[in-house]
Amino acid sequence: MSTFRIVHYLNQFFGGLGGEEKADAAPTLRAGPIGPGVLLHDLCRGQAEVAATVTCGDNRMAEHPAETLRAVLDLVREAKPDLLVAGPAFGSGRYGLACAAVCSAARQELGVPAVTAMSPDNPGAESRGAHVIVAISGPTASTMKADLERLARLAVKIGRREPLGAADDEGYLPSGRRVNEFGTKTGAERMVEMLLRKVRGEPFASEVVVPAFEPVPPAPPVRDLSTATLAVVTTSGLVGAGNPGGVESWRATKWEKYDISGLSELSPDAFTCVHGGYDTRHIRANPNRAVPLDALRASEREGRIGRLHDVLYTTVGNVMPVLRASQFGREIAAELRSAGVEAAIFTAT
């Protein structure tokens, strides 16, 4: 089988142009491998060749991203790659972001597969598109040889259009892609084996990645409810009759505000429920079951709370991605703060 052409992207430092004083260097195209590309070329021997190298200063890419990326892509296209390799960027943030951007653009705009390498905590690793494979590297160039070996192995596989194994086995960052495979043991057997390894103090790896939730310190308690302004926020899917704002019944993309000043309770004629994740008939029959406005007004009348904020905040919590929930929360929190709200009742179903 004939070899395929790799075009290698490097920053000014690894491209041999210079250090920070050359960080605004314009993109250039040179034939053959340079710097770490020489070893990459050797490691791919017989399978692929590093046919050309594109170098660009990190600051130039960071400060003028659109035009610089365009110029880099033009050079990459001119070099007719079968595969683009960028980096390794190690722990360098600007370089990592540049590698991720160049790989993503090569893939999307030129249709050229791309692979880069950087340390998992490099900001470029966060910014990459799902279609860019990122080989794991160390944080500094001291692990250059091992990192290039891993990168070369992945580059050859990707260049030859061979399927990649699992991220942990191949040494790349999880891409979020799930692949079905046949196992020889049932889930129950694997679970018991994992439990036994755990009990014996042996290493084991869960098959399910448990998301880590960032802790938020609890807000201090309200000193005196009888003088406090309270707001109600709900993810129960309560919306105005007819759902005028078109809130989706799952994966909602918006939250809404309703003026509840002057209402002593939520009437089923004025409110309905569009949550797609549970049987909503009890809520539709009596919306106070989701947002207890009747009971809260009574508390207000009896002086147990100071006053109820005039605005009800609502959305559908059904299958809401965590990132979006955080964004909605931040937006609503900003409104509550500027309205002088001191505490919130949050109803979730």
Binding site: A219, T235, I332
Partner: peptide, 21 residues
């Protein structure tokens, strides 16, 4: 969402039928 409201210092009473979440 509730955590972001707590983050700005507003305490939240989170009412749910499924506290495990």
């Amino acid at each position: 969402m509730a955590k972001e409201i707590e983050r700005v210092g507003i305490p939240v009473a989170f009412c749910t039928a499924i506290p495990a979440v």
